[in-house]
Design a protein around this nucleic acid. Structure first.
Length: 406
RNA sequence: GGUGGGGUAGCGAAGUGGCUAAACGCGGCAGACUGUAAAUCUGUUCCCUCUGGGUUCCUUGGUUCGAAUCCAAGCCCCACCA
């Protein structure tokens, strides 16, 4: 692939790029030296589930790989084990060595659903941080000023509002920047919220007499609520490891407006096709549900396969549009000990099936008309049920259980 | 070290002696409708064997017929000034 093609490919759909010119030069010199560029991507092992928010970046990394470059996937195990000692951030709990190792492993497995393992180098940042002496930390800190740190939007706002900023938070960007130095990154990419950290990597590389990395940011993708960026802590995410049905359903639940971003950044549908779909929707030629169904199929196929995507789509139509039962129902095994004179209270049955967290919650579902036994609505919470093998309990649109006996 | 502010349900945030299981917003759940787990509308949202009962407003002790609200001690958090 020639340099121009590579540039067009990797620069597409990014938000910030510092700079295209530099990237071009790097591509040229890399070609001249017959080596691949080193594309850095940092991963936080405290949240081991990769979701579609990460996929935006992973897709871009994959594009670099398709151009023959090497992805350096850094697992922040060192920082993960420290966490955020200020305790402010719930997303940064301190993890044990074992937890970090486990998370790192599952992280890689998931990342390789998108990345090509043959062109990926996995590194752990404890490699260089664990043996570091405090003296070196101080020296490193000397390269950054408080004013520089306060230039970061997030810090500036918090400082202005008299909200706390822990010193640790000042250190983390530095840690990330130092990673760039250690792996001699040519390019680093991240979400737009990472711009400051990425740029700091450039500064630090200059200090260490390295050619500064090219910095590229990609859009943050809103999660299921359509407002906040997709994140595990907000629970508004679609994980790449989730079963087809979940990925499909969750995708169908995003707002119509958000579809386009997913088409382009997650499903990687070419811009022209996205535009065509938008036109079809505007003209009424295609129904929004139909378009979203396509999106959901593309996403399921990306992490599972075509057949699973098709099956999920069929099942979704049956369960939600047709209000029918799904093909697989979770089972609730009862034994004679659970019954009193052959009966069990409806509320108990619901909580036993895990379809409500408490009896009170089950009661609400019943009183609000959300509970059915063999498709027959039951609105009295005092109902005593005489369960039989194969009885189907349904709570709301999504909760099902089939009763069996042991 | 000094001064001030604060800790209320999943989160944010009212409430400063009884009318408070605690306003309101977000989130969650259910229903209606639909184009779908979109949007919108309605209801609901501590627990329990539920026309009743139990336990809550950082902790412990106290005042009071009665405390999230008052007092004391403690723990924790934040800001500002040094």
């Amino acid at each position: 692939m020639d340099i121009q093609q590579q540039l067009d490919k990797v620069c597409a759909r990014c938000v910030d790029l510092h700079s295209r010119e530099e990237l071009k030069k790097k591509l040229e010199s890399a070609r001249a030296e017959g080596r691949p560029l080193r594309i850095k991507y940092g991963a936080d092992p405290s949240a081991p589930d990769i979701h579609l928010g990460h996929v935006v970046g992973l897709n871009k990394l994959r594009e670099f790989q398709e151009c023959g470059h090497t992805v350096v996937f850094i697992i922040g195990d060192f920082t993960g084990m420290i966490g955020d000692p200020s305790g402010k951030s719930a997303t940064r709990p301190a993890l044990s060595k074992e937890q970090v190792a486990d998370n790192a492993k599952s992280y890689q497995e998931q990342a390789f659903k998108v990345l090509d393992p043959k062109h990926t180098e996995v590194r752990f940042n404890s490699e260089w941080f664990a043996p570091m002496r405090f003296e070196e930390v101080i020296r490193l800190s000397a390269h950054v000023t408080v004013a520089q740190m306060l230039a970061r939007d997030d810090f500036a706002k918090r400082y202005a509002d008299n909200r706390p900023i822990s010193l640790v938070e000042f250190l983390y960007p530095l840690v990330q920047a130092y990673d760039s130095v250690m792996i001699r990154a040519d390019v680093e990419l991240g979400g737009t919220d990472q711009l400051f950290n990425l740029l700091l990597g450039r500064e630090l590389q200059k200090v260490f007499k390295q050619e500064p990395q090219v910095v590229m940011t990609l859009p943050l993708i809103e999660g299921l609520d359509g407002v906040n960026k997709m994140s595990k802590s907000l629970g508004n995410y679609i994980g790449v490891n989730e079963p087809p049905r979940e990925i499909f359903g969750k995708t169908m639940s995003i707002g119509d407006d958000l579809m386009w971003k997913y088409f382009s950044h997650i499903a990687r549908l070419p811009e022209a096709e996205v535009a065509a779909l938008q036109a079809d929707m505007a003209s009424g030629a295609k129904h929004p549900r139909e378009i979203k169904d396509l999106l959901a199929r593309l996403i399921v196929a990306k992490f599972h396969d075509e057949a699973a995507a098709l099956a999920a789509s069929e099942e979704f139509k049956r369960v939600f549009s047709g209000n029918q039962l799904p093909d697989e129902l979770p089972e609730l095994a009862l034994s004679a000990a659970d019954l009193e004179e052959g009966k069990i209270g409806l509320l108990t049955l619901i909580t036993r099936a895990g379809l409500a967290k408490s009896n009170a919650e089950a009661r609400r579902a019943v009183e609000q008309g959300g509970v059915r036994l063999d498709e027959e609505k039951r609105m009295d919470p005092r109902t005593m049920v005489t369960p039989k093998e194969g009885l189907i309990l349904r709570v709301g649109k999504r909760g099902f259980a089939r009763i069996t006996f042991q």
